[in-house]
Design a protein around this nucleic acid. Sequence first.
DNA 1: GTTTTTGCAAAATGTTTGCATAAAG
DNA 2: CTTTATGCAAACATTTTGCAAAAAC
Lengths: 160, 160
Amino acid sequence: MQADRVNAEQASGGLSFRKRAKSALRGAGMRWTQQRDTLIDVIEKAQGHLDVDELYRLARQQDPRLSLSTVYRTLAVLKRHRLVDELHLTEEHHHYEAKIGAQHFHMLCTSCGTVTEFSGALVDRLQQELRREHGFTVESIDLDVSGVCARCTASQPAAS
Amino acid sequence: MQADRVNAEQASGGLSFRKRAKSALRGAGMRWTQQRDTLIDVIEKAQGHLDVDELYRLARQQDPRLSLSTVYRTLAVLKRHRLVDELHLTEEHHHYEAKIGAQHFHMLCTSCGTVTEFSGALVDRLQQELRREHGFTVESIDLDVSGVCARCTASQPAAS
DNA sequence: GTTTTTGCAAAATGTTTGCATAAAG
DNA sequence: CTTTATGCAAACATTTTGCAAAAAC
């Protein structure tokens, strides 16, 4: 557990997600509660994309009394402080992930459901282009791709 | 009204949205109902981005008995047949627009609320890159940008 | 001790569904 | 005449909210 925390800090350049979250909230005059600690811990460890129910379920394994309202309220706070990103991978459920490391985006394979990340280099270019051509200053980009991943393309006879 | 229809046909290369929709649905063994005609007409004329409530409200001006269920059911059909696009411009409401003309994406100004369209050239490049680098075949891209438009940037003292 | 946060239950929101009736083909 | 689509109301899933009790500071 101690080791996990050290690894997490190394992965994100010396400051764990939990520590960043704690100081961001404390800095805004908010309180660091047991529930927020639990939820942040689950989100950080998930290393991926949780929807609200998964987050709720996992958090209750650590603290069975934690309520669904608290999950929603905490996600709202974390979104507001830009500590988590909300993804719209599917029509049905939103997914959330810790904002750690470089900006990236997601490809969802419609065949196997796998989510792959890709980096934001091309998206940076798009941002520049929007400023140059439209005078538009980008604040946030919501970009999700769906299609067929390499594995599924290879394993399926090309649909004619 | 007749003139509107002619203009619409010219704008989309000889086949109005309504005619395309009609033949797509008829081709799939579905019926061309009064309600579908009304909804398609509203969507086509809107020339922009309607959310469900706006669509419902406008459609009821033409046919006061048309129900909200029918709006949802019709949008589902149109989405399935790729006759409308569903946009995720804001957190709260989905928006829908007729799929007419070239692919394009949307920038939402967080200051004045204006939605501006931009073309898909850069997005095409992204698509190629994903195939080249990840072997991923793109089926659909959900891309929405928010930020500050040129007008608002100009009229506001640069926030320091 | 004061203020914020929580858990719970209730309400609000947005969307879907079952079913009898109406309309389309 | 047969099948599909509609309107209505009820069901559903998800998210938000009011409030008293608990926890943080």
